[in-house]
């Protein structure tokens, strides 16, 4: 009772990255308030799935394994989660802010009449006193997220309803194995007593999911281009530099919208969050929606012909000039100095 729950997404027998990141966060939260960490896994052919999950410090895994549960469908998954939560009364429930999590979590929150905060960038405990009633709350989950197009940061709380629910995007939390030999308990959900034909009102006719080809998230170095790069051809220089340095190419939304690069490379609030050891922002102005996804990079270099570009404020090195001049020089002097 009153434990921390993480809904784990499964694709092709693998627990999604985002779910592992949330388990890592969940373990930390659980330790802070001395609760257990529990995982919810719903799908089909899940034998052995616990081996992927226990190392993140999970105490209980609830497994619902049934042919009607994979691929993901809203109603059967929601029904199982709602049933489980009614029974287990979690204190906190976290979902990935993915196309599955953002489909499922609101439905569950509505059924349980509890609060849900989408797209949190930070989850911490804090206290609260209600002015009107004078009631004091200890260890509420502060759900922190950008709002209003990223121009403000809001801290949301759910004082009176449980679970406190939140979704978090992939890449926002750090993934870390807690203890590779950690073992908990596996509990099986009796699916047949929960589902009926009414839950199968939507049927999947076709499904084409690509394996993620581009994954810039884990790259130690990211060369990111914005609208100021100017063209698809100029982006080739960024790819050359990335290859040379062993990094990946990222982009701002304006560059993606202009068709310079693939959406999978977009960094920021509506793209991915990255924290490489070096982030080179080329021709990126530094709108908050962009910086929200990269401001935790260890070192930041900005290349911009406008000395007043906001990105320069958070950069360790600012090079004033044109991308097309500077990138070839970086390639040249990198080669010279590593020879």
């Amino acid at each position: 009772m009153h434990n921390i729950f993480v809904y784990c997404e499964i694709e092709d027998g693998h627990v999604a990255e985002v779910s592992l990141e949330l388990l890592t966060k969940g373990r930390k939260l659980a330790n802070e308030i001395d609760r257990k960490l529990e995982a919810v896994v719903i799908g089909h052919n899940l034998k052995g799935i616990e081996d992927q999950i226990f190392p993140y410090g999970v105490d209980v895994i609830h497994v619902a394994d049934n042919s009607r549960l994979y691929p993901y469908l809203t109603l059967p998954h929601a029904e199982i989660v709602v049933n489980l939560f009614k029974q287990e009364e979690p204190e906190i429930a976290i979902f990935g802010a993915t196309s599955v999590g953002r489909d499922l979590a609101p439905r569950v929150a509505s059924a349980l009449k509890c609060g849900l905060t989408a797209d949190c960038t930070s989850l911490v405990f804090g206290d609260h006193s209600e002015n009107k009633t004078g009631k004091e709350y200890k260890n509420l989950l502060y759900q922190i997220r950008p709002a209003f197009g990223g121009n403000i940061i809001a801290t949301i709380i759910n004082p009176d309803t449980r679970p406190q629910m939140a979704t978090v995007r992939e890449g926002v939390m750090k993934k870390e194995v807690f203890n590779s030999t950690y073992k908990g308990e596996v509990k099986h959900v009796n699916v047949d007593t929960i589902l009926n034909d009414g839950h199968m009102a939507v049927e999947i006719l076709e499904r084409h999911i690509e394996k993620q080809k581009i994954n810039i998230k884990g790259a130690p170095i990211i060369i990111s281009g914005g609208y100021g790069v100017g063209s698809k051809e100029n982006f080739d220089m960024l790819f050359d530099l990335a290859e040379l340095l062993g990094g990946e190419v990222g982009a701002s939304r304006a560059a993606v919208d202009a068709g310079f690069v693939d959406h999978a490379r977009q960094v920021g609030q509506t793209g991915i969050t990255v924290r490489p050891k070096l982030y080179i922002a080329c021709g990126i102005s530094g709108a908050v929606q962009h910086t929200a996804g990269m401001n935790e990079s260890v070192k930041i270099i900005s290349i911009n012909n406008d000395p007043k570009a906001p990105i320069n404020q958070i950069a360790d090195y600012v090079i004033i000039g044109s991308v097309a001049d500077i990138i070839p020089k970086m390639i040249k002097f990198y080669k010279k100095n590593t020879k």
């Binding site: 009449k113 509890c114 609060g115 849900l116 905060t117 804090g126 609260h128 502060y142 950008p146 709002a147 990223g150 121009n151 403000i152 940061i153 809001a154 801290t155 949301i156 709380i157 759910n158 004082p159 009176d160 309803t161 530094g286 908050v288 910086t291 401001n295 930041i300 000395p307 906001p310 320069n312 404020q313 958070i314 950069a315 360790d316 090195y317 600012v318 090079i319 004033i320 000039g321 044109s322 001049d325 500077i326 020089k329 970086m330 040249k332 002097f333 010279k336 100095n337």
Partner: peptide, 28 residues
């Protein structure tokens, strides 16, 4: 059920940054 506890405006803290030009010596 959700309450807004706090709203903060996004202000980026300015870092001490090294300013460089596009000249060879700077990039080197």
């Amino acid at each position: 059920p959700t309450k807004v506890k706090k709203i903060e405006n996004v202000v980026m803290a300015k870092k001490d940054s090294v300013e460089l030009t596009a000249e060879d010596k700077d990039i080197d």
